[in-house]
């Protein structure tokens, strides 16, 4: 398969439009962490999301 990894990274107006919604403060926070800390944070978030998914079906709307 030919690789295109050498090509220069050109601007893409569609992606540029999505950049307006990027929360740069979260990125800056993450960049202060080590790669291991970033992974640990991801794994904690995954556990949290899984816990919420498990909890979901047991929480029925109030009458």
């Amino acid at each position: 398969m030919p690789t295109r990894l050498q090509n220069p990274l050109e601007r893409d107006p569609v992606i540029d439009a999505f950049k307006r919604d990027v929360d740069v403060s979260l990125i800056r926070q993450n960049l202060q962490l080590t790669p291991q800390q970033r992974l640990e944070k991801l794994f904690q978030l995954q556990q949290f999301a899984a816990e919420l998914q498990r909890a979901g079906p047991t929480n029925k709307p109030r009458p």
């Binding site: 926070q29 993450n30 970033r38």
Partner: peptide, 11 residues
């Protein structure tokens, strides 16, 4: 992406 600093959740 997380290793590079992404704040997005992946499964």
């Amino acid at each position: 992406a997380t290793i590079h600093g992404s704040a997005r959740l992946t499964q």
